[in-house]
C-alpha cells in the first residue's frame, strides 16, 4: 500500500518535506508518526486528503497524510 506523507514546520527538520512510503499492512496515523520518531504529544494538526483526521485513523491506498505540530496565526 502506498501512502504520501507530507511534513511541515519543525517536523521537517532532519526528516523530509514529502515522501511516498510503502506499507504492507493497514497502518494508522499513530504508527506512521511513531515510525518517524515524532512524539505523539507534539502532533497538532493531522489531515488525510485535506480533511482533519485523528491519530487512530487508518490510511487507505493512495492517501496523503499531512502532519503539523500545534501552530497558529491569523
Amino acid at each position: 500500500m502506498q501512502v504520501t506523507v507530507r511534513l511541515f514546520a519543525g517536523f521537517r527538520i532532519g526528516r523530509f518535506k514529502e515522501e511516498t512510503r510503502q506499507y504492507d499492512v493497514p497502518v494508522t496515523v499513530k504508527q506512521i508518526v511513531t515510525g518517524l520518531g515524532i512524539p505523539e504529544a507534539e502532533v497538532g494538526i493531522i489531515f488525510i486528503n485535506g480533511r482533519n483526521a485523528s491519530l487512530d485513523q487508518t490510511l487507505a491506498e493512495g492517501d496523503t497524510l499531512s502532519l503539523f505540530p500545534l501552530v497558529g496565526g491569523g
Binding site: L70, G72, G74
Partner: peptide, 13 residues
Amino acid sequence: GLPTYGTSVLINV
C-alpha cells in the same frame, strides 16, 4: 509556533 514561523505558517496549513 508563532515565534519560530510567524503567522505565515498558516500558508501550508
